[in-house]
């Protein structure tokens, strides 16, 4: 399948996932957004050698995945192209940081290896947590949460409209690419001579479409911002979730539970 068709399918799948029902799906989107950002903030703030402390942070996204019924495999499958990139950034660390940091049994492990692993784990954890947010919250809800957090209405409306039009545009591009490929078989991409006209044609048509869209919005009395019907008020469950999450993050961040458990067991 073409890259663009993949993207269309993935958009639809994410939408379906976000519209399922679970205790996590039911939470107020604003609370989920704040908890996600706080989680990423705490994960990133770990010291570069603190692999031990960081490992325990994996429990939170796993609990979110499991309670919401989202498959962890789906996260890794969907983001299979991004995860290697996230992991690649730390690859140079072992070459530059060679001081021995710890020794396991009789084998010395350098600081570079530890910091590389920490960096990779940080990247994967952040991706997992962002994924679980999008998989349990519809885009409309995320936008309403952004609006409540006082992001300018103009930007939020632009986000919503763009999101709506991305699937339209991608389908259009997909059809055009198919048509091009059928007329020019055995080519890997768009040839040099058609670089301008290919997207240019679509651009011209899209501009006309935008004009129509503007007219129809005007006719329906659009005044610059969408109105959100049925905004959920914050309930005691939402506040409890947020407080608990923040407490868990702080506990994981400031108390070295991993080593503590290890010592207890030994």
């Amino acid at each position: 399948m073409k890259k663009i068709d993949h993207a269309i399918v993935e958009f639809k799948e994410m939408d379906e996932m976000a519209n399922r029902a679970s205790p996590i799906h039911d939470l107020n989107p604003m609370v989920k957004l704040i908890a996600t950002i706080a989680y990423i903030f705490f994960v990133v703030s770990f010291d570069k050698y603190d692999l031990n402390g960081l490992i325990i942070m994996v429990l939170y996204p796993i609990a979110m995945f499991e309670v919401s019924g989202t498959s962890i495999g789906a996260c890794f499958y969907k983001l299979r192209f991004v995860i290697p990139l996230v992991c690649a950034v730390g690859l140079f660390n072992p070459f530059f940081d060679k001081a021995t940091l710890i020794s396991i049994g009789n084998v010395a492990v350098s600081g570079g290896v530890i910091s590389m692993l920490t960096l990779m784990l940080k990247g994967v954890l952040c991706i997992m947590e962002s994924f679980v947010l999008v998989a349990t919250t519809s885009f409309d809800s995320i936008c309403s949460a952004l609006r409540r957090l006082h992001i300018p209405g103009f930007i939020v409306t632009l986000l919503l409209l763009t999101y709506r039009y991305i699937s339209v545009m991608m389908e259009e591009v997909s059809i055009m690419t198919d048509a091009y490929m059928l007329r020019a078989p055995n080519q890997k991409g768009i040839q040099f001579s058609a670089w301008g006209s290919f997207l240019g044609q679509l651009l011209l048509r899209s501009m006309d479409r935008a004009e129509d869209l503007y007219s129809s919005m005007q006719l329906r009395g659009f005044s610059g911002e969408f109105l959100y019907a049925g905004l959920k008020p914050l309930s005691w469950k939402d506040i409890l979730f947020l407080l608990l999450s923040l407490m868990i993050f702080a506990l994981f961040r400031f108390v070295d539970i991993t080593s503590f458990i290890g010592q207890l067991v030994m």
């Binding site: 890259k3 663009i4 993207a7 103009f154 409306t157 632009l158 409209l161 763009t162 709506r164 039009y165 991305i166 339209v168 545009m169 991608m170 259009e172 591009v173 690419t177 080519q187 890997k188 991409g189 768009i190 040839q191 040099f192 670089w195 290919f198 997207l199 679509l202 651009l203 899209s206 501009m207 479409r209 935008a210 004009e211 869209l213 503007y214 919005m217 659009f222 005044s223 610059g224």
Partner: peptide, 25 residues
């Protein structure tokens, strides 16, 4: 603001989709 909104949204969506086209060098 209001007048530009649809044009901006459609252009942004277009660039998003356009970035997925492979141009042969």
């Amino acid at each position: 603001e209001v007048k530009k909104l649809p044009v901006m949204a459609v252009s942004a969506a277009l660039v998003f989709a356009g970035q997925m086209i492979n141009y042969t060098i």
